[in-house]
């Protein structure tokens, strides 16, 4: 059996990659993909713990997370399309009417 630590370290790494992606990438779609990577790394933590503890709650939560991520994707891509129709851009640096 693979030790729990391996799952935790891998998911922490994936989560960090997601955070870095959100912070440094400028394309909205890539930023959104990085957020999805963060959510899925959390899923890995949850199933890792769930198997380790022998408790099904974690796996149940994973299903909720997947459903929520799907709803978020639908809304998020809708917002991106509405934005693209107005501005012809998906670069977050160019989306800056609102400031100070």
């Amino acid at each position: 059996m693979i030790p729990l630590d391996y799952y935790l370290i891998l998911s922490a790494l994936l989560f960090t990659f997601g955070v870095i992606g959100v912070v440094i990438r400028r394309n909205v779609i890539i930023v959104f993909m990085s957020i999805e990577l963060m959510l899925n790394s959390v899923n890995l933590t949850l199933v890792g713990y769930s198997a380790y503890l022998g408790d099904p709650t974690g796996q149940m939560l994973v299903f909720f997370v997947i459903a929520v991520a799907a709803a978020e994707a639908a809304v998020g891509l809708g917002i991106v399309i509405a934005l693209f129709r107005l501005r012809r851009t998906v670069n977050v640096d160019e989306i800056n009417i609102l400031k100070w």
Binding site: T57, V65, I79, L83
Partner: peptide
């Protein structure tokens, strides 16, 4: 309006990621 929505969405989803990781670690 669309800009507000996009900013809220990206930052909100980002924050959700952290909140969920917190829940996972507390669960574990």
């Amino acid at each position: 309006s669309i800009e507000a929505s996009l900013k809220y969405f990206l930052l909100g989803a980002f924050a959700t990621g952290f909140l969920l990781y917190g829940i996972a670690l507390i669960y574990g």
